[in-house]
Amino acid sequence: MTTETYVVAYEGDDDSTKVLDYAMASASKAGAKLYLVHILEWSPYSFLTPTEIEERTMRRKEELARAKSVIIDPALAKVTAAGLEAEGVIKYGSVVELVAETASTVGASMIFVGRSGSNSISSRVFGSVPLGLAQIAPVPTVIVP
């Protein structure tokens, strides 16, 4: 029997802890492995000043290093400490698109996402991550309240 993979959209805030805990509980029951995805919101069509352009590569390195050390690594440590298998990835782009895309590429059987931010005005106007995933996720998606 092949091991199932669960993708977890992991932001690193308090809500994400709940998502991760829930996903870990589900994974240990099913014997699944976790694949944590942390997305740094980024649009290639945003506008930058000349100084920001010059420093972009440097900033990107810093952002990736920070996301790895502060967000993904501690989460991975927590999952493996619980005796589960886990991998993590940090990507730039749109959260909804990349989480759905990652679920497809790693052949995940389920996505776990928090409900965080769903009540903000902007999420009501532009849609939130869980709502977006509900529309385009390639596999069943669990929204953890």
């Binding site: 740094l40 980024w42 290639p44 069509y45 945003s46 506008f47 930058l48 000043t49 000349p50 352009i53 972009r56 590569t57 990107r60 952002e63 990736l64 990507k91 730039y92 782009g93």
Partner: peptide
């Protein structure tokens, strides 16, 4: 439009951004 941009380079300065910044000058 980013049709030739490697997705692994996301987060770096895109062609669009370089053009937009040069244009705003």
């Amino acid at each position: 439009a980013g049709k030739y941009s490697d997705p692994n380079d996301a987060g770096e300065v895109s062609h669009f951004q370089a053009l937009a910044t040069a244009l705003s000058g």
